[in-house]
């Protein structure tokens, strides 16, 4: 799986970085920085939680 940000929706709430710190860092304005978007099986539950928690509905888990 891969995690994707819809940049037109993301408001920089930063919640994703708290719920998925293994994958998501934040830039100086609070927008996510994701160096490797591939999500290993072990992280999928955490990633799903982050997707569900994003208040802007900006995160998606996509196959691949």
């Amino acid at each position: 799986m891969r995690i994707e940000v819809d940049w037109t929706r993301c408001d920089g709430h930063g919640l994703c970085a708290r719920l998925l710190p293994e994958k998501v860092g934040l830039d100086e304005w609070g927008f996510p920085v994701i160096d490797t978007p591939e999500i290993g099986d072990d992280l999928v539950p955490h990633a799903r939680r982050a997707v569900g928690a994003c208040p802007a509905l900006a995160l998606r888990l996509v196959p691949g």
């Binding site: 940049w7 037109t8 993301c10 408001d11 920089g12 830039d27 304005w29 609070g30 927008f31």
Partner: peptide, 9 residues
């Protein structure tokens, strides 16, 4: 202006 990293960066 619709994507934060572009708008601020």
């Amino acid at each position: 202006g619709q994507c934060g990293p572009c708008f601020f960066g």
